[in-house]
Amino acid sequence: MPSVSMTVNGRAVTGDVEGRTLLVQFLRENLSLTGTHVGCDTSQCGACVVHVNGESVKSCTMLAVQADGAEVTTIEGLAKDGELHPMQEAFRENHGLQCGFCTPGMVMSAVDLLQKNPNPDEGEIREWLEGNICRCTGYHNIVKAIQTAAASMKG
């Protein structure tokens, strides 16, 4: 059984996994980081989005062994010292979530957007979110939240 080592939310972790173990399974089952969710099996819903080496990826479409040696950030690693990340805060402020299931992936995806494009317009935000499905909010408040976060992160 292959052994993998990676840094997850700043913490070095090691685990024995099968070749077929998905990154999301490793996070949820081995590390009990259950904030990352699985909402589909065809890599479309985006509930499982985490950052690997700083980029958003679908952790259900990546093997744990592929993340060997990587820096992984999950929703649990976003808030620092009990302080919500500005994106989390903006989601709360703008009611960008309802049932909360798609939220971790949505937030991680949105954070990656602002890394790449700190000043996106509404159309760019909507297009970026193509890989994240939310059934509750109609996206209206998610888009608002990302705009708010963009403004607050600019400072």
């Binding site: 259950t34 904030g35 649990e76 989390q88 709360r92 979530l97 909360g100 299931f101 971790p104």
Partner: peptide, 19 residues
């Protein structure tokens, strides 16, 4: 009022059945 439930959902601490 901002939602009380949001903190746990936004920080990955929601507790769904599969969790």
């Amino acid at each position: 009022v901002k939602r009380k439930e949001d903190f746990r959902f936004l920080t990955g601490q929601g507790r769904y059945t599969d969790d």
